[in-house]
Simulated scan of single mutants.
Amino acid sequence: MKPAAYRLLRPLIVLAAIVILVENWLWERIGPLIGRIVALLPFAALKQAIHDGIERLPPYATLAVFAIPAALLFPFKLAALALLASGHLVLGGLVLVLAKVVGVGVTAFLFDTCKPKLMQIPLFVRLYATWNRWLAWAHGLVDPVKRRIRAHLRIIRGGRANRALKLLRRFRRVRQERALLLARKA
């Protein structure tokens, strides 16, 4: 890619990296949470039946089971978009976020059960490897920026920069007070 084109596309590339990292963050945080919630449910026989049913399925049928949460939550996402389009921004946003969180959580929970069967599908293995490469790429792109931001925040929160900012504010306040005194005398 030419340097000028890269500079133009860089914001979109960074946005794509951030989307990948947010998806992964949701997956890592919400999946185990949903797993713990499901573990608390008193439906041990039902959960075991679902697990056993998935174990008996061939790989491609397991892939269909893995897609069920997306299909079940699609109407909620459409309803959220309708709410957003009709001007109910907060409610539409909440429904969309809730559908996303539940979808990611349930999909992550199902993925743990389905993964051995899914890894028998060559295309899925390639897509999974591609996702992991994208994740590594996104971390390589965003992590240095996060480290620089954290370093700047540490400098601003404490240390010399904080004292310098306080001193600068004091100088400005003294200058404003002098200006007021001069204005009163005139």
Rank of each mutant, 00 (worst) to 15 (best):
R169C: 13
R157M: 08
R163K: 13
V101C: 08
W134E: 04
R178L: 15
A39R: 11
Q120R: 11
A183M: 02
A5P: 01
H51D: 15
M119S: 05
Y6E: 10
L40G: 06
H152Y: 07
I20N: 12
A4Y: 11
P122V: 03
E28H: 10
V90G: 05
L91G: 01
I155D: 07
L83V: 01
L78F: 13
G140S: 08
L81P: 00
R169M: 14
L153I: 09
P42W: 07
W131P: 02
I20C: 14
R173C: 01
I155W: 10
I34C: 01
A129P: 00
A44T: 13
A5C: 03
E23F: 14
P144R: 06
V102L: 15
V102D: 03
G31D: 08
N162W: 15
L46Q: 09
K77S: 11
Y128R: 06
R170F: 14
N162S: 15
L91H: 01
A164F: 15
R29I: 11
A183T: 00
L78A: 12
Q120Y: 02
V102Q: 04
W131A: 12
L94A: 10
A45D: 14
I156A: 15
A186F: 01
K115V: 04
G159N: 07
T107Q: 11
H139G: 05
P11T: 05
K100G: 13
L180T: 00
L127Q: 07
D143F: 13
K146T: 05
K100R: 12
T113G: 04
K2G: 15
A186H: 05
G53I: 04
R175W: 09
K185S: 12
L73S: 06
L127K: 01
G31W: 04
A179N: 01
L118P: 00
R56S: 10
S86Q: 14
V38I: 15
I20Y: 05
M1W: 10
E55K: 09
K117A: 15
I34G: 00
K2I: 07
L26K: 03
A70F: 07
K185Q: 11
L168E: 11
A39Q: 12
V142G: 08
A45W: 12
V102I: 15
V104P: 00
L83N: 05
A136E: 07
L63V: 00
V102R: 04
I149Y: 11
L57D: 02
P144C: 08
A161E: 12
R29F: 13
A186Y: 03
P3Y: 04
G105H: 07
D52M: 06
G92M: 08
A161T: 12
K146W: 09
K166D: 14
L180F: 02
P144A: 09
N132M: 13
G140M: 06
I13D: 06
Q48F: 11
F66G: 00
R169S: 14
P122L: 06
L167V: 08
H152W: 08
L167Q: 13
L96M: 12
A16P: 00
S86V: 03
V125Q: 12
W25N: 01
G140T: 03
R29P: 03
